[in-house]
């Protein structure tokens, strides 16, 4: 059993780690939120409440796995699986550290964007198959939001691709040996950050599942582990976006020698995860039309401008 990119061991460890991390985020998020809200958060189950995750898991696994009689059963069951699979597949192209990764694809960036698009199907199927007005409204919102923000998510990345000259994420990391792309591509970073949140519909862009307006949006009718898959899928998305930001703009695993590369990667990613949680704690949800106009009228021109300027600079040098 050798330890190289694409080996079975590598795949297994990455898959397991990613899922465990996503599950642990349940606890992390609640603790961090309470930290910023002057509370303690879950602290009763196990040391520091760490076993809260286990308790939640037991609960979610033992809940009645209910399919509404009016739902379209096949797509109803399929929907949560799609989002899990799509996001887990995205991790395949993420270079965690030298020698750690599933595949070094030449079209890594495109692959990530493609998987993100597939995620939109999950939400739409969930909403349609539930046969519930809130679910339908939620999925409508989700579809519009994801399609819109995908556009300039891709455009914002092109600056990085242009600078590095590669779609291969590992090569993008290596290209940052001289300096993180966050500096030349600051605007691209900001746009990618915003689009990433919107893509994973985390707060404040959780418009598809806005409780106050449409119950729980597209997953209103879900319970038990099917809901759990949406739930974990959201955290997986969070990890994925953080990892991608690290890879694309913050030099991936690279850092001073006193820590191993994987640790650098983890630290950088965690900072962004924490930042996303801080966003949730601080920023209120925008209105749906505000979200759309913000995207199309502000972020899209900005990202195009960014690409134009980047291109101009590359050509001129």
């Amino acid at each position: 059993m050798n330890w190289e990119v694409g080996s079975g061991l590598n795949i297994g460890v990455i898959l397991l780690t990613v899922i465990i991390v996503a599950a642990m985020l349940i606890w992390v998020e609640r603790r961090l939120l309470s930290l910023w809200q002057e509370r303690l958060g879950p602290n009763r189950v196990g040391p520091f409440g760490l076993l809260q995750v286990v308790a939640d898991m037991i609960k979610i696994f033992t809940k009645e796995d209910w399919v509404p009689p009016f739902a379209d059963k096949f797509s109803f069951v399929l929907a949560p699986a799609i989002i899990m699979v799509a996001i887990l597949l995205s991790f395949a192209v993420v270079p965690f550290a030298p020698g750690v990764g599933v595949i070094d694809s030449n079209i890594g960036v495109l692959f990530v964007l493609a998987m993100a698009s597939i995620g939109a199907y999950s939400v739409m199927l969930a909403g349609l198959s539930s046969d519930n007005k809130y679910a339908l409204l939620g999925s409508l919102r989700a579809a519009a939001q994801m399609i819109s923000y995908e556009v300039f998510m891709g455009v914002s990345l092109l600056g990085v691709v242009a600078l590095s000259g590669s779609f291969n994420l590992r090569e993008i990391v290596l290209a940052q040996a001289d300096g993180w792309y966050v500096i030349p591509q600051f605007i691209g970073f900001v746009i990618f950050l915003i689009a990433g949140i919107a893509e994973s519909h985390r707060l404040p862009f959780d418009i598809p599942e806005a409780e106050q307006e449409i119950c729980a949006g597209y997953h209103t009718e879900y319970s038990g582990m099917k809901f759990g898959m949406f739930f974990v899928g959201e955290y997986l998305g969070l990890v994925l976006i953080s990892s991608l930001i690290t890879v694309l703009f913050f030099g991936g695993w690279m850092g001073p020698e006193f820590l191993p590369p994987i640790i650098w990667f983890v630290i950088k990613s965690f900072i962004f995860i924490a930042f996303f949680i801080l966003l949730r704690a601080a920023i209120p949800r925008p209105r749906y039309d505000q979200l759309m106009s913000y995207g199309w009228l502000f972020l899209l021109p900005l990202s195009l401008l960014n690409l134009l300027v980047t291109g101009a600079i590359i050509l001129s040098t």
Binding site: L35, W36, E38, R39, L278, A282, I283
Partner: peptide, 26 residues
């Protein structure tokens, strides 16, 4: 819009972040 984002949203983030250093009321 950029200005608002900086003054309002980033300021909010900062204010909320500062709560990490306040003792919990629980």
């Amino acid at each position: 819009l950029i200005q608002d984002t900086l003054t309002s949203q980033v300021h909010t983030l900062w204010l909320v972040f500062k709560h990490a250093f306040v003792k919990a009321d629980t």
